[in-house]
Amino acid sequence: MNAIDHPLVAAYLDSVARETADLPAERRAELLADLREHIEVSEARDDDAIRTVLAELGEPRTVAASALAEEGTSTTAATATAVGAVPAGPLAGRPAARVIAFLPALGGLLILGSPFAGTLVLAIGLALLWRTPLWDARQKRIGTATATAVPVLLLLGGLLLAAGRVGPLELLVIGVFSIGVPLSGALLLTRALRA
């Protein structure tokens, strides 16, 4: 069975269609076509795989609220965005996506000054990164690896320091990588948004 013909997908798309009744017909059709395309590209076949794809897209109400907020047609959608709801779905707002792209890197860098705050921001950033469908799994893995480079480099630096093998050159290399690697990962995620 093709993923788009699956009953779970049909129910999901019907729910999004109901939630977006206030959208102009052309915009609504475009949103549903984008969702269908995303589901088809996933090539999910069994129930679990389809549930995973639908979960990555976000709840129908959240997807609809994001689309309505972009269109400016719903006070409910604007209220949901104002109270901090993160837009989900393939059409999530680009400014929010850029924040999500840089949040894990910022968390990694904050670990240098405040381990608790940095770890908290890193965890939140990675959770948001993996929740949004704006990036594919490969890009999410790269974003995760680059954001967690700072803690790994700090651990490596600590081990080298304990072994007495850290000189000025090694400290410089660790410092450059601690800043450069997370930022390069965030820039990669940002560039992927434009593609």
Rank of each mutant, 00 (worst) to 15 (best):
L31G: 07
L120T: 12
H6S: 07
V173F: 14
I39A: 03
G93R: 10
R45A: 07
T146R: 01
P133F: 09
I174T: 08
I39C: 06
L129K: 05
E56R: 15
A96T: 14
V181M: 00
L110V: 12
E37M: 13
E19W: 11
E30T: 09
A3E: 11
A64F: 10
S178F: 02
G185E: 00
R165S: 06
A92Y: 10
P87A: 14
L91D: 10
I100R: 14
V9S: 08
A162Y: 04
E30Y: 08
I124F: 11
D5Q: 12
R131M: 07
P7I: 11
A82G: 14
R61N: 00
G107R: 02
S184F: 14
L126K: 14
Q139Y: 09
G180V: 01
G108W: 00
L8P: 04
A92W: 07
R141A: 13
I174H: 11
L103N: 09
A97T: 15
T52P: 03
A64W: 08
R191C: 04
R45W: 06
A192E: 10
R98T: 06
G118I: 07
V86Q: 11
T81Q: 15
L171I: 05
L54D: 05
L68H: 10
G175M: 06
G84A: 12
V86E: 10
A65M: 11
L35Y: 12
I4L: 15
G143S: 08
R94M: 08
L103Q: 15
P182A: 00
A78M: 15
R138F: 12
R98D: 03
A82I: 06
F116G: 02
V63M: 03
L134K: 06
L134N: 03
G93N: 14
R141Q: 14
S15W: 02
I50K: 01
P24R: 15
T119H: 03
G113N: 06
L172V: 09
P87M: 13
L183T: 00
T132N: 13
A44L: 01
L112Y: 03
E19M: 15
W135D: 02
L35C: 08
A3I: 08
G157C: 09
G108V: 05
G107C: 13
R61I: 03
L103C: 11
L134H: 08
R94H: 06
E70C: 03
A25W: 01
E170N: 05
A105H: 00
L187T: 01
L103W: 13
R94W: 04
E170W: 13
V53D: 05
L106H: 04
I124R: 08
H38A: 15
S74V: 09
L112E: 02
T148R: 02
P104C: 05
V176T: 09
E71L: 06
T132P: 14
A69I: 06
L187P: 01
A33W: 09
T148P: 06
L13C: 08
V173K: 10
V121D: 04
L110A: 13
I179D: 01
V9R: 09
G143D: 05
A25P: 02
T146Q: 01
L183R: 00
G125S: 09
L193W: 12
V166G: 04
A10P: 04
E30N: 08
R194V: 00
S66H: 12
A3R: 14
A101T: 08
G175K: 11
L110Y: 10
R141G: 05
I39P: 07
G125M: 11
S74H: 07
S42C: 07
